[in-house]
């Protein structure tokens, strides 16, 4: 690891000034940045420790009735927060399906969202292309976004609160995370010195709380990145789907929202044909980027399964194996 300087500013203003210095990087939980530094992918000259900045470590309701998760709230605390379980249970299931308890205890909300799309070489374990994208990729970059949290956040229309020299700005997560263009890996749209200070969930997204699931397929049942994952949430009214929210993980450089599939679900009665049609629409335009054509059909089937599980209703508590389609708590799948 290269040498670096370390500072721990006491105020947001001080942090923003230090973060704007050349070679500076913000340090929160460290589980991602330190990993990148150990393998030489990141080599900051200055680490600005933002873990103790005031106002970033709470989950609170905003004046508009939205829910604001401070960027420094640890993943395990988000997953266990009563307001998350009640209003956005899909976030708890997504978070608990990621990493290990030790990493979730350290990793923060902000750091989770800001993870870089993960190239297989960073794993140091596997060089094949099973992990690569099937949607939105270019010849130069087909790596996928590694976060489970961000997939559920994308489905819920989360916004990011970003602090900079000019004050605060709000950006929809879907616009913030981008696709690769031409020869370059897309980088998160943070200007020098800007700091992600919170993730905000709109109150309207809580309407799907009763029918919201995150489902994740991976090489082993626990502590593995997604091969394919699906965040599926339905707003039900009189036995029909009033509106749907659907996002896929593990298939693209960013969480993949599916407006055409969501439109096809709106107004329909839940059932296998409707879900299969939505699944086909969700994967429209998908193409293998290597030896990974299987992921396209896998993703279609997982969309249908996730929709069926969402239609059956959010379980009273997160299943023993969060997000696993193998969990016994699911009982017999209703439609697949």
């Amino acid at each position: 690891m290269n040498r670096f300087d370390y500072i721990r500013p006491a105020s947001l203003e001080e942090a923003l000034a230090a973060g704007a210095r050349p070679g500076a990087a913000y340090l929160a939980g460290g589980t991602n940045l330190l990993d990148l530094m150990k393998v030489g992918v990141a080599a900051p000259a200055l680490l600005v420790d933002v873990t103790r900045l005031p106002g970033l470590d709470a989950i609170e309701e905003t004046a508009e009735g939205d829910l604001r998760i401070g960027a420094m709230v640890r993943n395990s605390d988000i997953a266990r927060a009563p307001e998350i379980k009640a209003l956005f249970p899909m976030l708890a299931e997504a978070l608990l399906s990621g990493a290990s308890a030790q990493l979730r205890n350290a990793a923060t909300a902000g750091g989770n969202v800001l993870q870089r799309p993960r190239a297989a070489l960073l794993d140091g374990m596997r060089g094949d292309d099973r992990d690569l994208a099937v949607l939105g990729w270019t010849d130069a970059c087909a790596c996928v976004h590694p976060s489970d949290f961000a997939v559920a956040l994308a489905a819920l229309d989360a916004r990011l609160e970003i602090a900079g020299a000019a004050g605060l700005r709000a950006v929809p997560l879907a616009d913030f995370l981008s696709l690769p263009e031409g020869a370059a890996e897309a980088v998160p749209a943070l200007a020098a010195g800007e700091l992600l200070t919170a993730v905000v969930l709109p109150a309207a997204a809580a309407r799907v709380a009763g029918h919201a699931r995150y489902v994740k397929l991976r090489e082993r049942t626990s502590f593995a990145f997604a091969l394919v994952s699906v965040a599926a949430a339905l707003e039900m009214e009189g036995g029909r789907i009033r509106s749907a929210r659907l996002a896929l993980g593990g298939v693209a450089h960013k969480p993949w929202r599916t407006p055409a599939a969501e439109a096809a679900l709106a107004g329909a009665a839940p059932g296998p044909e409707v879900f299969a049609r939505a699944a086909a629409l969700a994967l429209e335009g998908a193409a293998p980027s290597g030896d990974n054509a299987f992921k396209i059909e896998l993703a279609r089937r997982l969309v249908a399964r996730a929709l069926a599980l969402a239609a059956a209703g959010t379980p009273a508590r997160v299943p023993a194996l969060p997000a696993s389609p193998l969990d016994a708590d699911h009982g017999a799948p209703a439609y697949v």
Binding site: Y6, R8, L27, G30, L34, S76, Q102, N105, A106
Partner: peptide, 15 residues
Amino acid sequence: GRRVNACMSLAVTLD
């Protein structure tokens, strides 16, 4: 009070 991986935590942050 929380279990963490000591390898992913910089000592300097733990004052």
